[in-house]
Design a protein around this nucleic acid. Structure first.
Lengths: 205, 205
DNA sequence: ACCTGAACACCGTTCAAGT
DNA sequence: ACCTGAACACCGTTCAAGT
């Protein structure tokens, strides 16, 4: 069997298998993707260019789903919150993909579209032009970081007994990883929105 | 030559070689570290446990250097700013190490010490106890993200012509990667400090 | 204790060969 | 166009053997 009458493989099938592997094991490889699809390793190269390409396709898949935010008809604060929430939710659905996304330039137009939406909202809010990219970047760091935390173990910082009293106090009685990551995200988002509001007021007066 | 009269290798030498490789190439491997040190690959295992261990030792090395911040004698806002600055500076000195640090639990006591200092300052500022870890997390995301950005190419988001006007406007006339990462960090830090201040006021009244 | 060399089970990518 | 199988240059880790 060399060339089959109808293709055994497709870009979609490859991306699905790779993403499932990432969700289950935290990584993917060509041998494993090929094995899942019952195909030889080198066959993958008929549909994708290389490993980086698969990662970029996974990025596209993950950020393709969300319901669009109705930016124009919402007060800017609500629009921004909804956009950032949506953006983070996409990553929270596949937290183990985040480390792979982080080390690679964003080429997917869907994701760039989300940045565009944020830029529109921040502009409309009245944020100084040179502060728009810093604000989007800070938002990005927050969403990425708080999704990345879901990857880690129950206890990310494990301060040994006694030597770190303030940290131990702060950690005591905290919830699950999910709750803690959500709390950090909520805190950061509140603070960012408030910060943008203040910057806007200061620019006007 | 089997066992030499004085050891050819040391933990320090391994960490130095690995960190140099990361700085130069963005990654390290056992064969490459061994080649640098003129030694066989398996010899490394006489001094370190595994790859993860080397990464954790690099973390320790990178965060060991900074001059300690005099937290007690500074107003909390200045102390916090200095702490976060110092923390970020350590990573900015080795931005290509950040992707390796991010996927691994923090075990190094030096780094946990920095978190402890932040917890002390935030407690002293009067931040509600359950907000301390979220605040430190958000700070961490910001420092990590803005260091990570130094890794990327000159243009992280490359919006194609025309379709993303607000983003294109925002990007136009921005500085180098370093300047943009610094601007995002400065923006985020300002906003975080202001956010903590506001939370404190709200808790008191 | 500390090194070498061989071995093992993994990677990503290329390429000739087949239909 | 689309697949197989072999090949290549890489990985991390283990282990017997040597001093």
């Amino acid at each position: 069997m060399a060339r089959p009458r109808s293709p055994l493989l497709s870009v979609d099938a490859i991306v699905t298998a790779a993403l499932a592997l990432v969700d289950e094991t935290g990584d993917f490889s060509f041998p494993k993707v090929a094995r899942r699809l019952g195909v030889s390793q080198s066959a993958l190269y008929n549909h994708i260019a290389n490993r980086e390409h698969i990662v970029e396709l996974m990025r596209g898949r993950v950020f393709a789903t969300p319901a669009p935010v109705d930016c124009e008809n919402l007060p800017w604060e609500e629009a921004l919150r909804a956009l950032v929430r949506t953006y983070r939710d996409c990553m929270v659905a596949h937290p183990r993909l985040v480390p792979l996304l982080i080390t690679q330039t964003v080429q997917d137009l869907g994701v760039i579209g989300i940045y565009e939406d944020m830029a529109v909202v921040l502009e409309r809010a009245g944020l100084a032009r040179q502060a728009v990219v810093p604000a989007i970047s800070a938002i990005d760091y927050l969403a990425l970081g708080s999704a990345l935390d879901l990857t880690g173990p129950e206890v990310v910082w494990a301060p040994p007994e006694g030597r770190f009293p303030a940290l131990s106090r702060a950690i005591a009685g905290l919830g699950s990883v999910e709750e803690r990551a959500e709390a950090a995200f909520a805190f950061g988002l509140d603070v960012l929105v408030a910060g943008v509001r203040e910057q806007v007021l200061r620019t006007i007066h």
